[in-house]
Amino acid sequence: MAYTAEISRTNPSCFLFVIDQSGSMSDNYVSVGKPKSEALADVINRMLQQLVIKCAKSEGVRDYYHVGVLGYGANGVKPAFGGALSNKKLVPISEIADNPARIEERTKKVSDGAGGLVDTSIKFPIWFDPTASGGTPMTEAFKQANSIIEDWLSSNPHCFPPVVIHITDGESTDGDPTQEMNRLTRQSSNDGNVILFNLHTNARSTNAISFPGPETTLPDQYAEKLFNGASSLPSFMRNVAAHEFGLSLSDGAKAFVLNGDIDLIITAIEIGTRPSLQLR
């Protein structure tokens, strides 16, 4: 049965984020009044922080996962970690834990225990900074993602399959990425095929579509390309969607979002980064 491999230090899994950093990502999300690039950087940094904490034990961080962030925009396609991890493609989670580019102090509202909220200062590690300029070389981004995943799978043939989460707000400016997306989802470990999330985000989030089945009507050819390229959600992810987010998804539901606001993107990332049920 697919997607049942144990995730352990001897058999780690991997997450690869592929992030659109083109000029249009500087538009503000209407709901949060912040550029898409900044809001997404916060989301990715928080997700990395949560993953580090999930893998932390009293003696250190256990390398259950290797994680990479690939950005594409004005500077072409490049690994997007900052600081000591610059230019690294896939990094063991313990190395991520020990090498944030910096740790910021941020304020967060927490319960005061008497029904109210108070501001408290929290440490917020930053690995990935927002950037937004230039075109959208999506095809090249998928080419590089394929090469990273191919290398990973040749060294980890029995792993829980890699999850690739692609976030974009636009159309490819370097050709049709369909072939590269198909190549990616055809790659597999002994435990199943790579899972590709195509998450399209929109500043206004009008007519959002999330995790649709095959019968969905999409507004344009471009949305169809992202839809067709995305994997179908495996049943364990549909279970996460049901139990954690109250989403009842059909058998053929795709790992695909169109015109999602930041909250929908977060939900999709949460669903995609929860193969921790197998974590030991």
């Binding site: 932390a56 034990k57 009293s58 961080v61 740790i103 590690p125």
Partner: peptide
């Protein structure tokens, strides 16, 4: 403890 172990222990 490092930041992550501290945050984990807080749970």
């Amino acid at each position: 403890l490092p930041w992550y172990a501290q945050q984990k222990a807080e749970i």
